[in-house]
């Protein structure tokens, strides 16, 4: 552990100079002979909100999985706030302020909404192995209640997650990503399957995030994506195809052709 700690402190110093929240260099992920993503180089400033667009199979979710450490990239380096986390397990990256939501909700169906959020808060704080139940007035319980309120779910705090509607599960996904002190969040299609009202609520939650929290959002719904993002990365066949402001991307003839040609228009 001491080895890790010394490395951590020296890396923290390095992060001051580099200044990017997230930096990918030449990240490639092979599944057998197939490159799901290839030579991705990408950097995102702290507080920047970036949308990643692309058709199905463009490698967007694989990119997220590599960034969070759900699986390790075949080659390339990933730096989180200047620190090289390429070989860190997922939980170490999360403890450094990275968060993510999943495209298909990955929640604990057998636990209540409060329990789910409480676990998320506990995961990024001390006492993960505590055998003592939290007392009334435990700061984490307060924080849990606040998060549930932030995603408008106070009424269903004691409901089993498996009994929630689809839209509520999506909201809960976001609450889990906001637990602790997030510094950078990856949203994987948070609006998929939501009703127009729920979409509006989602946009409000995303635009209402504190300005120091940057995020990357994968979203098929251009309305949502372009309203919350200040920069856009287009992916195609596992590679970065275009980068630019939302206006540039929207008006780019190549992008239009790609998107319309794929039947997404």
């Amino acid at each position: 552990m001491t080895l890790l700690d010394t490395r951590r402190s020296s890396e923290t110093l390095a992060s001051v100079s580099s200044g990017n929240a997230l930096e990918l260099r030449g990240v490639t992920k092979m599944f057998g002979a197939l490159a799901a993503i290839e030579d991705i180089t990408l950097s995102v400033r702290p507080g920047e909100r970036r949308a990643v667009l692309g058709s199905n199979g463009a490698g967007k979710t694989t990119l997220f999985n590599c960034i969070t450490g759900d699986f390790l990239p075949t080659s390339g380096t990933i730096r989180l706030f200047g620190e090289d986390v390429s070989n860190f397990p997922a939980y170490e990256r999360i403890r450094r302020g990275l968060r993510r939501t999943y495209q298909i909700s990955l929640l604990f169906g057998g636990l209540t909404v409060s329990d789910n959020v409480y676990l998320a808060c506990r995961g990024v704080s001390r006492g993960r192995f505590s055998l003592l139940r939290p007392r009334r007035g435990d700061p984490l319980l307060t924080r849990t209640a606040e998060l549930i309120e932030a995603v408008h779910m106070t009424a269903s705090g004691d409901t089993l997650v498996s009994e929630l509607s689809y839209g509520q599960q999506r909201q809960l996904e976001i609450a889990l990503a906001l637990a602790g002190a997030p510094r950078f969040i990856l949203f994987d299609e948070p609006a998929a399957g939501l009703s127009p009202t729920e979409r509006a609520e989602l946009v409000a939650i995303l635009t209402g995030l504190p300005s120091h929290i940057g995020f990357i959002i994968i979203e098929h719904d251009m309305d949502v994506a372009l309203r919350v993002a200040e920069s856009v990365t287009m992916m195609h066949n596992g590679r970065i195809f275009k980068e630019g402001t939302p206006e540039e991307i929207e008006n780019d003839p190549e992008v239009q052709e790609l998107y319309l040609g794929d039947g997404h228009g």
Partner: peptide, 24 residues
């Protein structure tokens, strides 16, 4: 019902998500 026990049930239901919440 302690943090450890809850986390263990979380690991049972969904180990991948637990790792993505910061649990080893």
């Amino acid at each position: 019902r302690s943090p450890f026990g809850l986390a263990l049930q979380g690991v049972r239901d969904n180990p991948r998500r637990m790792a993505a919440l910061g649990f080893n």
